[in-house]
Write a protein that binds this DNA or RNA. Sequence first.
DNA 1: TAGATTGTTAATCGATTAACAATC
DNA 2: TAGATTGTTAATCGATTAACAATC
Lengths: 213, 213
Amino acid sequence: MIKGKDGTVIPKVVIERLPRYYRYFDWLDNQGEKISSKNLGDLMGSSASQVRLDLSYFGDFGQQGYGYNIKKLKSELAKILRINSRTNTIIIGVGNVGRALTRYKPFSSSGIYISALFDIKPSIIGEMVNNIMVHDIKNLAEYVTVNNIEIAIMAVPKEIANEIASSLVKCGIKGILNFAPLDLDLRNKIPVENIHIIDKILALSFMIKERPE
Amino acid sequence: MIKGKDGTVIPKVVIERLPRYYRYFDWLDNQGEKISSKNLGDLMGSSASQVRLDLSYFGDFGQQGYGYNIKKLKSELAKILRINSRTNTIIIGVGNVGRALTRYKPFSSSGIYISALFDIKPSIIGEMVNNIMVHDIKNLAEYVTVNNIEIAIMAVPKEIANEIASSLVKCGIKGILNFAPLDLDLRNKIPVENIHIIDKILALSFMIKERPE
DNA sequence: TAGATTGTTAATCGATTAACAATC
DNA sequence: TAGATTGTTAATCGATTAACAATC
């Protein structure tokens, strides 16, 4: 239960919309000084009411008769999402997905710093992948503590995902971004966000089949 | 508006849960003959009511006093999600993400067949990436028609994403899986699913900050 | 048959939108 | 000041859960 400015619970849907607001304010940054909830809603395809209510969970950022100051909102949202402070992150699993993530540019401009990689496979332990060292998964707990790691990105086979996830929790990891195609069984001990590529493309596959011409 | 078994509209949330049901039935496949909505719900962390109502949009798959036959449900869901029929797909953008997706194994076992890659960069056009040819984006329209391509996966810079998206629509592409970090402006002409990696990790970043110890 | 469990309708819950007083 | 637009509360809408008759 995450609380907002006056102690009310912020719905998860609202939290998950926050980065989207940030994207729009980032884009608006060189497009003018201010924007009203009406205009922003039109831009984002949502209602002015939703814009105002969503933002109001985090603070009173607007001004009557004026709207929202773009620079200010961008900086407030950056603070809320911790975009300008470094979030130490590790990637577990140095396969196809794990390797691609080491090259994923947008992380750095979002404060996400990939500190190390972990794998079980002896042949790649000690290797450097895009200037990031591959560590033995055995040393996970120590590394996480010593280096103050907050987020783990899991890119491991689904067969070992739950085992890895529970050891991450034991290590004191604060949140997991999971790419393995299963739902981790963590009983809400720590927040998890899933990226289920196959789920998305299959939903699409269903929707295009059913579309009238 | 996608309609279910008796013409009622299927909510989008339900469609997006379908692949998840498939994952569970796939896993259950060697775990017994039948399962009740109660047991499945416990497994998935949802209510028995939700399981029954969700599945009922697509057909009457259960039997009173028995539950759902696992093999049957798996095969029904496979049919609904077109897992066993080939869905011709192209990837636009041969950068870090596009290349990684050519190596993404789970596609093939979900019926997703990556037929070709497209890019603007002359230096890579004609190259083979993991046995898939990189084509000139200029030839998109012809290729899509001739090869009966249904889905395009977009892994292009956000600056050109909307332009590419609208040409995809013109080509007759039926659906888009978008990895570019923006919301495509398609006015619901065709279905789009987004994979916003940064949005997910930023939401996580917010949630871990706010968690009580 | 009796117990189990479905599919569906009704009740509840939560999220979105509308309305509006406050005020820049 | 008058017009614009906020933040918030009330009304509405949609999704989830509970209840239950049907029936295997």
